[in-house]
Design a protein around this nucleic acid. Structure first.
Length: 572
RNA sequence: CGGGGCGUAGCGCAGCCCGGUAGCGCGCCUGCUUUGGGAGCAGGAUGUCGGAGGUUCAAAUCCUCUCGCCCCGACCA
């Protein structure tokens, strides 16, 4: 295509609204424009990238035996009430009424709709396994959309749903999707890692997230430096420590700690390290308030805590509750003499002796508090975030932490939805059996954003070949008839050879074109001008390396064919 | 929802404290020159100063309310 016929509104300045690299570059390179918070128009260039990613997804999903269909964006409340998610999903579910006052929502995901289809249309185990997928616009009314396509409210998602007659089959379906995802993100040119993930509210037993490693990621990944273990920090297990502090017990002593509330303040005041202090945090879990003991240098993992308490979420108690329960303002809570609420503790507390802890009295802590002698713990559990240097919970090595962008997630759902919606088929005994389900999502726009996060420089985007909006950016740096004719010939030849070519045929100066080309990030740039043609050559620049070579126009197609094979081995 | 910040031309911003009828750079349009890393000269167009109300002779500027947006947090299948 010719630049003169495409809307590619590149920006010279960084837009004020964008902070992260991918958001900034998507706006600057003319890929997207914002319509409202978290809602974007995909401009021609941006849409081409999304279509490339979608095509890779289609090929791999089809290869894995999934079949494409398309469900509606609007779905009726009744389906959501069947699974109780109409109430459960909260404000993220955008609801509305039609002219007949019937309730609808915009689909944030499609378990209900697909399960409804399945129960209506599928009768026999002989039809299984089945895997349906779609690539479609989703709407989630996020509390805080951010970073452009990274976390939008309206976004394009590939979602797939598998149905099997038994657990064994479901695991095979799951593994197929896991493998397909690995191929998809590899083909997209991403450096990623599949990590064990929390199943959250969607439920189920097993889940993996596909994380693109990038500093701007919102998630934290913990992985073994030697073994294969990798997990979302929300999920990463921490082994129970085996070592016990051998010190002899010292007498419990109150100590005045005026205005010292935080770990930093108390440890500095008492000249101790955070490892000798135990934080007592009060959490609200449903109707209950619980106390959680955690070592001073550790952080509570609220996902683990919620799972232990069998609630959907926990929230730190407000100061009034703390005052009411402990008799002291926040900053001085402790387990000694704490009545009427459950006291839970992280495993690390078990081995500690002579600890510093709040005294449930304003401006006071205890020194030398000891488990059993001074306070009791109802239950010990893994309640903290893993830290760098912790032993890998499975396999060799110690954990390292890194930031990641979640581009995909796979879930083994079990019968969570088929049970509530009674999606069953007859088995080989003629007996009804609930389908065992799995669900599998990929954020298409987020994948594009993640690719930019991993592939850019100070000049702009450096697209991996398979998802580039164009393979070749043809730049004419002279308006002469000679150059224009030579460019027109190459333009046709390259397209005939199967390349997607963007010809910058604008009358602008060379510098403008070079800068836009670097910004837009096609893998290869071809510069045609009178100077080069006089020498019988055109210039080929590889965007990623910046390496330029002088090639005779007749050799160009073959030369680029070689370069592109190197750039995308999977396409061969 | 809590904290911080911003809404002035298509984009990036100044002006606001101290009220006097709106400006800079880029972009855009016209002409001439120029044309291999964001050209030069000349001329030109573009604003409900986010919105509403108030104070005032006079409001982009002061006051009140409100809407939108960004960042941090909380939240996030």
């Amino acid at each position: 295509m010719k630049t003169s016929q495409l809307l590619i509104p590149t920006l010279r300045d960084d837009p004020g609204e964008a902070e992260t690299v991918s958001h900034r570059l998507m706006l600057r390179a003319g890929l997207i424009r914002k319509v409202a918070a978290g809602i974007y128009t995909y401009l021609p260039l941006g849409l081409r990238v999304l279509r490339k990613i979608e095509q890779i997804i289609r090929e791999e999903m089809n290869r894995a035996g999934a079949q494409e269909l398309l469900m509606p964006i609007a779905s009726p409340a009744e389906l959501w009430k069947e699974t109780a998610r109409w109430d459960y999903y909260g404000k993220e579910l955008l609801r509305f009424k039609d002219r007949h006052e019937r309730e609808f929502c915009l689909g944030p995901t499609h378990e209900e709709v697909i399960t409804d289809l399945f129960r209506r249309e599928v009768r026999s185990y002989r039809q299984l396994p089945l895997n349906f997928y779609q690539i479609q616009t989703k709407f989630r009314d996020e509390i805080r959309p951010r970073f452009g396509l990274m976390r939008g409210r309206e976004f394009i998602m590939k979602d797939a749903y598998s149905f099997d007659i038994d657990e064994v089959g479901a695991k095979i379906s799951y593994q197929k999707m896991y493998d397909a995802y690995t191929r998809i993100f590899t083909r997209c040119g991403l450096t990623f890692r599949a990590v064990e993930a929390d199943t959250g509210l969607i439920g189920g037993d097993v889940s993996h997230e596909f994380m693109v490693l990038a500093d701007t990621g919102e998630a934290t990944v913990a992985y073994s430096d030697q073994g294969s273990y990798a997990a979302n920090l929300e999920r990463a297990e921490v082994l129970s420590p085996t070592d016990m502090d051998a010190a002899s017990l010292m007498p419990l002593t109150p100590v005045s700690t005026p205005q010292r509330r935080t770990v930093e303040e108390v440890t500095a005041f008492l000249q101790i390290t955070p490892r000798q202090l135990v934080k007592t945090l009060l959490y609200r879990a449903g109707d209950e308030t619980v106390a959680v003991l955690i070592r001073g240098d550790h952080e509570v993992n609220e996902v683990k805590l919620a799972r232990l308490l069998k609630v959907t979420d926990v929230v730190l108690a407000d100061p009034e509750t703390v005052q009411h329960v402990t008799g002291a303002p926040p900053g001085f809570a402790g387990p000694v003499g704490l009545r009427h609420i459950r006291i839970l503790a992280d495993h690390a507390i078990k081995g500690m002796k002579n600890i510093v802890i709040g005294a449930n009295k304003s401006d006071t802590h205890y020194q030398n508090a000891n488990l059993d002698r001074d306070f009791a713990v109802e239950q010990f559990a893994d309640l903290r975030n893993a830290q760098a240097g912790d032993s890998s919970p499975r396999g060799p090595g110690v954990l390292t932490l890194a930031k990641g962008i979640e581009v995909g997630q796979v879930f083994l759902l079990g019968t969570k939805y088929s049970h509530k919606m009674n999606a069953a088929v007859l088995d080989d005994q003629g007996k009804e059996r609930l389908a065992i389900m799995g669900c599998y999502g990929i954020g298409v726009g987020r994948t594009a954003a993640a690719a930019i996060e991993q592939h850019h420089d100070e000049k702009g985007i450096i697209w991996p070949f398979p998802i580039a909006p164009f393979h070749v950016h043809l730049l004419t740096v002279s308006q002469s008839q000679k150059t224009t004719e030579a460019a027109a010939r190459l333009y046709t030849d390259l397209m005939d050879a199967g390349f997607e070519v963007l010809w910058d045929d604008r009358a602008d100066r060379a510098g403008v074109k070079f800068n836009d080309a670097d910004l837009i990030g096609a893998p290869f740039q071809i510069v045609i001008g009178d100077k080069g043609l006089a020498d019988g050559i055109v210039e080929v620049k590889i965007r990623r390396s910046g390496i330029k070579s002088r090639i005779a126009p007749d050799d160009l197609v073959a030369h680029l064919g070689k370069l592109s094979t190197e750039a995308d081995p999977s396409a061969a």
